[in-house]
Design a protein around this nucleic acid. Structure first.
Lengths: 117, 117
DNA sequence: TTAAGGTCTGACAGCGCTGTCAGGGTCAAG
DNA sequence: CTTGACCCTGACAGCGCTGTCAGACCTTAA
């Protein structure tokens, strides 16, 4: 699958797909003519990257547990660090969620004070 | 209150307080010598700005409903647009919250797959 | 052959923050 | 008067993305 198709399937811009690669998150084959050639499975990978990114995670961070993101079976090596990062990240996400909730309530308070309408 | 104190009270760096001002969010008096002189009430304002910002809201957006942020009683003029922005913003926050939740679950799935330990 | 559409690389620029540094005042205590 | 703690302005730089543009090649269909 060429980059344009992957882009369409995932909703991630071509620019960003190349960026993912530059950051080491994707390593597509190359056809004879130099075109990137993605495995179909990468659709899932990209979607997960998207998700994690939406959670405020940095590509560099995502890179750390890329094997997991790619769903490459049980992992042995980097697991301990991985677990740590994962837990930290979850903490982080929880904090963000809380702040979001606070923001939301501030927003709603404003709405009321203004006169809900 | 001078900028250093406001900074300490709010946990917002001096740099950022000045930035808030540059963006029109704060308009402190100036003492004879040119020092910024903040009203005590601004502590609350700054805290709200912080909160809204943490929710992913841009300073420019916050500026739009600054009167509300400052809690300046009932507002007349910009209310309709305000309500709209507010609602949009709440939608946005909700979406972010959802994504965060998804990220979280992805994270936790990873944790499990790795072998919860 | 030509034109259109997809791809390649590399580079520049912008977003909204945020830190830091330089060069220079102010003020109170010693 | 000097020192140290604050304050001022302005500018540069970096973060992590993200778009866009330029210049060039490949491929397919008319």
């Amino acid at each position: 699958m060429k980059i344009g198709e992957l882009s369409k399937r995932t909703g991630v811009s071509i620019r960003m797909l190349r960026y993912y690669e530059a950051e080491g998150l994707l390593k597509p084959e190359r056809t004879r003519n130099g075109y990137r050639d993605y495995d179909l499975a990468e659709v899932r990978t990209v979607e997960r990257i998207k998700l994690l990114g939406a959670g405020g995670m940095t590509l560099a961070t995502i890179l750390q547990f890329l094997p997991c993101v790619r769903g490459e079976g049980p992992i042995f090596e980097p697991c301990d660090e991985l677990r740590l990062t994962l837990r930290q990240q979850i903490r982080l996400v929880e904090e963000k969620t809380q702040k979001l909730a606070q923001s939301r309530s501030v927003l709603e308070t404003f709405l009321q004070e203004i006169g809900e309408r």
